[in-house]
C-alpha cells in the first residue's frame, strides 16, 4: 500500500508539449510511471515519442480521461493558465470518474487565482489537489514506481517511511536521510510553498496514519502561516505512528519573502521557533538540522519498537 497513488496509477501530463512538460514526462516514464497521455489545447492528435514510448496528445482533459481511463494528472503549464488547468482537471475527473489526483508543479500562480481554484476543487470532494509550487508525489516500487512530479527518482527506494514537506530540495534531503539509516519510503509528498494550496499536512498525516505500509513519518515545514502548528495539534490527537519534524527558516528575518511566496514571517507570526515548540509539545521528534533527520528517525523507530 501507499497513499493516493500506486504503481498502477495512470497519469496524464497537462502542458506536455512545453519544454518542462516534455522533459519531465520523459523522466517520469524512465522511472516507471505509467504516462497514458498528454494535454495541450490546440495540439490534440499529435503523438510524442518519449523514452521509446508513444504518448498521444489530447486537446482537453475530458477527452483525455475518456480515452485513457487516467486517474491522475500533473500540471506543467505556465502560471497564467495554471489555475484554469487545475479546475479543468478537477471538473473532468469529477464528472467522468468521480475522483482523481491533480498535481500542480507550476510556480508563481497568483494567490487570488489559487483561492478560486482551491474553492472549486473543494466542491468536488473526490478530487485531490497537490501543490502548486511543489515537487509532486512519488510512491517508489520494488522496481521503478510511480513518480508524479520533478523529484530525482533514483534517490528513492520502497520502504516504510512517509514523507511530507513544503519544500522540494529539502524533501530530497529527507529522503537521503532515511536512506542513510537504511530506510525506504512509502510515499513522499511535496505540498508546496505557496500561501494557498490544495492538500495540507493534516491530509497527509491522516493518509499515512491509515496506510499499512507506512510505519513512521517525516514532516518538514517552513516559516509562514500556521499549518505546522495546526498539524502538530492534530497529530497529537490522531496519529499513533512516530513523527520526526524539521522546520526551515529559523534565521529568516521578519517581513522578507524567502523564495517561496508563503515563506514569510508577517506580523511576528509564523516563526520557526513557534513551529518547533508546537512540534515538541505534540510529542514529535525534532531534528534541529536536516542532516540529523536520519539519526533522529532511528531513535524514533527504536523507541516505538520498530528497530
Amino acid at each position: 500500500m501507499s497513499i493516493w497513488i500506486n504503481e498502477h496509477s495512470k497519469v496524464l501530463v497537462q502542458g506536455i508539449t512545453g519544454s518542462q512538460g516534455t522533459f519531465h514526462a520523459t523522466k517520469m516514464i524512465e522511472y516507471g510511471t505509467d504516462i497514458v497521455g498528454g494535454v495541450t489545447p490546440g495540439k490534440g492528435g499529435q503523438s510524442l515519442d518519449l523514452f521509446g514510448k508513444s504518448v498521444t496528445v489530447y486537446d482537453g482533459m475530458y477527452e483525455a480521461i475518456q480515452a485513457t481511463d487516467a486517474n491522475a494528472s500533473v500540471i506543467y503549464v505556465p502560471p497564467q493558465f495554471a489555475a484554469e488547468a487545475i479546475m479543468e482537471a478537477a471538473d473532468a475527473f469529477d464528472q467522468i470518474k468521480g475522483e482523481g489526483v491533480v498535481v500542480c508543479i507550476t510556480e508563481g500562480i497568483p494567490t487570488l487565482d489559487m483561492v478560486k481554484a482551491v474553492a472549486y476543487v473543494n466542491q468536488r470532494p473526490g478530487v485531490r489537489l497537490i501543490g502548486p509550487n511543489c515537487p509532486g508525489i512519488i510512491t517508489p516500487g520494488i522496481e521503478g514506481g510511480c513518480k508524479i512530479g520533478i523529484m530525482p527518482g533514483h534517490i528513492h527506494k520502497k520502504g516504510r517511511i512517509g514523507i511530507v514537506s513544503k519544500s522540494g530540495t529539502l524533501t530530497y534531503e529527507a529522503v537521503a536521510q532515511t536512506m542513510s539509516i537504511g530506510e525506504g519510503q512509502s510515499t513522499c509528498i511535496g505540498i508546496g510553498g505557496d500561501p494557498v494550496n490544495g492538500t495540507g499536512f493534516i491530509d497527509c498525516l491522516a493518509g499515512f496514519q491509515d496506510d499499512i505500509q507506512t510505519e513512521a513519518i517525516v514532516m518538514i515545514g517552513e516559516i509562514g502561516g500556521t499549518a505546522e502548528e495546526d498539524a502538530a495539534a492534530w497529530a497529537a490527537e490522531n496519529v499513533t505512528k512516530p513523527i520526526v519534524g524539521f522546520v526551515a527558516g529559523a534565521t529568516a528575518p521578519p517581513g522578507k519573502r524567502m523564495g517561496h511566496a508563503g515563506a514569510i514571517i508577517s506580523g511576528g507570526k509564523g516563526t520557526a521557533a513557534e513551529k518547533f515548540a508546537a512540534f515538541k509539545s505534540a510529542g514529535i521528534y525534532v531534528a534541529n538540522d536536516p542532516s540529523e533527520i536520519g539519526a533522529v528517525l532511528a531513535v524514533a523507530l527504536k523507541e516505538a519498537g520498530l528497530l
Partner: peptide, 17 residues
C-alpha cells in the same frame, strides 16, 4: 549558494547552529 527555497533557509539555519 543553494538550490531550493527550503534548503536555502535550512542552510542558513545550520550555519547559525
Amino acid at each position: 549558494l543553494v538550490n531550493g527555497a527550503g534548503l536555502a533557509m535550512a542552510t542558513m539555519d545550520v550555519i547559525q547552529l
